[in-house]
């Protein structure tokens, strides 16, 4: 047993061929998941039971089960029904890529929705009252006062969740997709050299995590610039 550096040099470019797929999975699921999260959030804070109740149930189910099980239910499970196979969604659900994006988006939506709610709950009540006293309507207060501050408050947790999402994209390899993880598993199956391949891949993922955190850190500074005091 020895550490074979030539294998590292060989496998990194091969694994990077899957970077595009990893990024696609991540970007699509992040956008779709965040849109879903906003919808769930608005339902959750609407104070109408027929909107609150479905939103709470949804979040409870998707946060309470493993993402791997959700992927399997969508990819292996749904085709059990003829109605699904005949529906217009079949071209998406037939492909592992579509299923992975769907599962990751549905999952991210549940988590991000709670993060955004945390941000909204964290906004100082006095600000809303001040805005009301200045004659802003409920809608204006929500859009111009609550939302920008809630976004700033939710950013650190949101950035952690995007990192989680990036890590979850590796599970797409369990439904035959050749993202970076899928390619790494193929190489390991051929060479049986887990150390060289998996450690190199771990470094690639860590670099991605680093850049995600950097980008969100910058965004957070931008959003909190009004808090800086000028000396």
């Amino acid at each position: 047993m020895s550490f074979d550096f030539s294998l590292v040099i060989d496998s990194i470019p091969k694994m990077l061929m899957g970077l595009g797929l990893t990024l696609q999975l991540m970007a699509l699921s992040a956008v779709l998941g965040t849109v879903l999260a906003v919808v769930l959030l608005l339902m959750r804070i609407s104070r109408r039971w027929y909107l609150v109740w479905p939103s709470v149930t949804y979040i409870y189910i998707f946060r309470g089960t493993p993402i791997l099980v959700q992927i399997f239910i969508i990819y292996y499970g749904l085709p059990q029904f003829e109605a699904v196979r005949d529906s217009i969604f079949w071209p998406i659900l037939r492909e592992p890529f579509g299923c992975a994006v769907l599962a990751l988006s549905l999952n991210t939506g549940a988590y991000v929705s709670e993060i955004l709610r945390g941000g909204i709950l964290g906004v100082d009540k006095g600000l809303g009252e001040a805005a009301a006293a200045l004659g802003l309507s409920v809608r204006q207060r929500f859009i111009h006062i609550t939302t920008p501050i809630a976004i700033r408050l939710a950013t650190p947790a949101y950035s952690n969740d995007i990192v989680s999402l990036m890590k979850s994209t590796a599970l797409a390899s369990t439904i035959t997709l050749l993202d970076m993880m899928g390619i790494a598993r193929t190489i390991v199956a051929e060479t049986f050299a887990p150390y060289e391949v998996f450690l190199s891949l771990a470094v690639i993922y860590m670099v991605m995590t680093f850049f995600i955190q950097k980008a969100f850190g910058r965004f957070e500074r931008h959003m909190s610039r009004y808090l800086k005091r000028e000396n």
Partner: peptide, 26 residues
């Protein structure tokens, strides 16, 4: 903390399982 928060769980799991298997086998 940086390493294990920045890498996918499945990767750590496979590395530990197959890595230890190779070490033990040799």
């Amino acid at each position: 903390t940086v390493v294990f928060r920045g890498t996918p769980e499945i990767l750590v799991l496979l590395l530990i399982y197959f890595g230890s298997a190779i070490a033990l086998t040799s």
